[in-house]
Amino acid sequence: MSFFKVQFRSDVLSGEGEFGVFLPRNAQPPYKVLWLLHGAFGDFTESIQYTSVLMYAERRGMAVVAPSSYMGVYTDMVYGEKGYSFVKEVLEKAPKLFRCLSEKREDSYLMGISMGGHGTFKLAAEMPERFRGACGFSSPVDMVYTMSILEKGEHFGGHELFDAFGSSAAYSGTVGDVISNLKRDLREGRQLPRLALCWGDSDHAAPEDERVKEILDQLGVKFYSRVGPGGHEFDTWDPMMQEVLDYLMKEED
């Protein structure tokens, strides 16, 4: 794939931001786009280095756009950077800079690794008309719940999550309250993106993702999930990526 690393003066960060753009060599523009969100505390190179996601995307004629979200928690932090607004800034500006990227819903997909899956579902719930598919790997989709167990001392996360999200009460009812926002979308009759969530059988995120699956099942949301062998690591996620992409991209049934 052709690779562009873009560094620019971000309006929302009041500083510099960066994203990577990878263009397929085997397709004609406008390209389908996989918006790839990295995990907490990483940057846009993380999933590129540790998985074969570029190869999987290119096989499907997709470009990949990967922003570096500040601290990688996909929220406008209580104490910190506006990580979620920055990702939305890239979402808006990247297709205007790279005119070969499609902005159509039917060509737009989200994939998030670990915390990137929170960003993925957050975007999917906020703007379901923008994306045809969205998938997370071992992700704290319901960050309000994750914060609540963190407050009880029952989660491995540390003070940085409080710095970012404040508290479960503070995050509840915001754009990051994914479950509430998905329910709102359903009430309003908005068409949700095709959704998928995968995790490992010895993954510390497994209980949270199983809970999200139950909630979505109860809501009647059509939903793909898969549990692979392994823990919270790229070895677990990479073998599931192609199957998930095919699910997200398949024709309506």
């Binding site: 052709s2 690779f3 562009f4 690393k5 560094q7 620019f8 060599r25």
Partner: peptide, 11 residues
């Protein structure tokens, strides 16, 4: 300001 680093294979 923006700075772009491109790596790729172009005819």
């Amino acid at each position: 300001m923006a700075m772009i680093q491109f790596r790729g294979s172009v005819p």
